[in-house]
């Protein structure tokens, strides 16, 4: 592996999985700096290990993967979280992405897909499956229909972003999208990333608004 070793932390409560992922990552030249079996362990070991990428299972003993994502990124915003989940429940994945995760892969993905996903997430790219794109798209549709209309300049997707997101959800690769829309690969990548950024921004604004409301009520 020519690339300089990316520091990775693996969080999974199933030892057989943790070991398999760790072995694959090490064989491919990644530096597995820490492993954890619970949310509490992950949060405790994160500051000392300083991984660049956290490969995270959502269903782990308290606190869950969504909470771990939020805590870890609050501690080090430059870290990246890749969700590797067997969970059949999409709401969990969406919550983790809102909390700041930039990649999602199902556990049945092949070894090559996993390694490629870790590399891309480490580079700062987002790893979207069509399924995740569909969830994000659905979330923006819901926000647009919701009672508190989103601030269009900040929260809503542009027409182009919506178009790109729909194409990802329909299973087109970035390369295919770039060809069809006559854009560069990088531009497609940026559009996809913007949708995530807006979703996470919206989530933060909502959380802040909620906190202020609670605070005012208490006072």
């Amino acid at each position: 592996m020519a690339e300089r070793a990316v520091r990775v932390m693996v969080v999974d409560d199933h030892p057989m999985w943790r070991d398999a992922v760790e072995r694959d990552l090490q064989a491919a030249g990644f530096d597995v700096v820490a492993v954890a079996g619970t949310g509490a362990e992950a949060i405790a070991r994160f500051p000392a290990a300083r991984p660049q990428v956290v490969v995270l299972d959502l269903r782990i003993p308290e606190p869950d993967g969504v909470e771990v994502t939020a805590r870890v990124l609050r501690h080090d915003p430059s870290a990246r979280v890749l969700i590797l989940s067997a969970s059949g429940e999409q709401a969990d994945v969406l919550e983790a992405v809102k909390a700041g995760a930039t990649g999602y892969l199902v556990k049945s993905a092949s070894r090559e897909e996993l390694l490629e996903a870790v590399r891309r997430v480490a580079r700062g790219d987002s790893v979207f499956t069509p399924g995740l794109a569909g969830l994000v798209l659905g979330e923006f549709r819901r926000m647009a229909e919701g009672p508190t209309a989103p601030d269009p300049s900040r929260d809503a997707l542009t027409d182009r972003e919506t178009e790109v997101l729909r194409m990802v959800a329909k299973g087109l690769s970035y390369k295919q999208i770039a060809e069809r829309l006559v854009l560069s690969h990088r531009t497609v990548q940026n559009h996809v990333q913007n949708t995530l950024r807006k979703l996470q921004m919206h989530n933060r604004v909502e959380l802040t608004r909620y906190a202020i409301e609670q605070g005012l009520d208490d006072g």
Partner: peptide, 16 residues
């Protein structure tokens, strides 16, 4: 949920 998650984990591992 706990059972389903465990089974999904194993099925994913078998596939891989």
């Amino acid at each position: 949920r706990a059972v389903h998650d465990g089974v999904l984990q194993v099925l994913a591992l078998v596939q891989r």
